[in-house]
Amino acid sequence: MTEPTAVPALSGTQEAILAAYAGLIEEVGSDDVSNRVIARRAGIAERTVFRNYPTRVDLLLATAAWLEATVFAREESHSIFDIPLAIRDAMQRYDARPELAHVVAETAMRGVNGATPSPGRAQLERLLDGEVPSLDAAQRRAVIAALSHLDSVGTWVTFRREFGMDRRDIADAAAWAAEAVLDRIRDRVAP
């Protein structure tokens, strides 16, 4: 993702609920926080939480989308060749807020429950089609898929968990991999 994810406009109450929930997740170290506690933190009635987010999955999906659009928002990239820089920044941001990063990561992997695992896909396609329009369908798909995958919190989770990497190493390896994906198309920019 290279620009804030399109999030449906939130009411003040909804934003208060999501902010309260995110704050509690960081304090408790788990997304297992009761609606009663969320309501108290947001200064609203418990039934207001239920009315806005009838199920826990609804609340998690909204929270993850809100986090990606606020705490983890990317600076806009104007070129597909800027994406590695955006990825480097994003990894550092995830590393600064690990509990929230895990919530976003798990929510994106909920499968058929309405999660959007590649929110930045449209932006990547727009940049790639504008700069390197000569790719065939399979090449184009492979570049977009690889960059979408790397430009996600899953990268931070995997590099940290499987390789014990710290913030600097994760940012380096993720950006390096993105540069590798771009190597093949580096000199194929439309004049």
Partner: peptide
């Protein structure tokens, strides 16, 4: 790390 991440269930799911 790159090979690991591209071979993951996450890659398939995404």
């Amino acid at each position: 790390a790159s090979l690991r991440y591209f071979s993951s269930a996450m890659f398939w799911a995404r």
